[in-house]
Amino acid sequence: MAILSIENLSKIYDHKIHALNNIFLSINKGEVFALLGPNGAGKTTLINIICGLTNKTTGTITVNGYDTVDQCRQTRKLISLVPQELHLDPFITVAQTCIDARGFFGKKYNEKLLTDILKQLSLWDKRDEKVQKLSGGMKRRVLIAKALMNEPQILFLDEPTAGVDVELRTSMWNLVRKLKEKGTTIILTTHYIEEAEEMADTIGIINDGHITTVAPKEDLMKELGSKELIITLMTKIQKIPDALHTYALSLSEDGYEITYEYKKTTSTSITAILSSLKNEGLKVCDIETKESSLEEIFVDLISNPKNLISHS
């Protein structure tokens, strides 16, 4: 069931900047959705409109069936946001800012929850420190802690791991997994493809204010992900033997490596190629396969619009 549904959403800033164009998007309950796109694509704008920080120009958004403008009280109760920038009051303590975050949502102080969240994000020792004394990565954690204090059903993470060390990044991933187990819907933006690959169920690609692709991560990988088979020969050859011309093969400059590129979905000709090589009397010294990462798929999608697959 769709917990978030966006119809024909557009945003024009100052009558001229078209930040979002006719966005349609539907996100299911419990899903982890990664929104990928280059700088200025409109990711933050989209999130801010859903959260009530930015006014939309046209379109409708519903969260759990409620309209985000007319019934914003109901929708905002369900949503927490971790903003892209480190927006924190420097003069209050970590614990206080977390308590306030829950208070604004109209929820009673809950000591156990506060303790759990601060411990989970390794902020327990810092609870009485003023926010201004924390490092950037710790501030990022405070923002996450504040968002969790509202026990949201939908959590928006706008580049949660920008400027964060490897350790925190992995603990972030674990946190997302735990929240997902509890049924929280998570929508994140990121520039790190590995992050989307690691966490997301569904990937949306946004470019220049248009959502160009929405697909389950596996499908995206399968449909566009190609694999390479690299065969290293014992002796070098001048050209690919005629018998192998039916396959799309390429030969490296030094004449030792034959590369075969294939889609993961199509039935492959690996066995045929290997037996042809044997028939030609060529001895194979090594075989290696390479899989394209989401990053390569992503670059491909942005630069070759004709490859776009659209699921809406």
Partner: peptide
């Protein structure tokens, strides 16, 4: 300082 977001996004 940008913390207005927490008031604007709250119910």
């Amino acid at each position: 300082i940008g913390t207005i977001y927490e008031i604007l996004s709250a119910p």
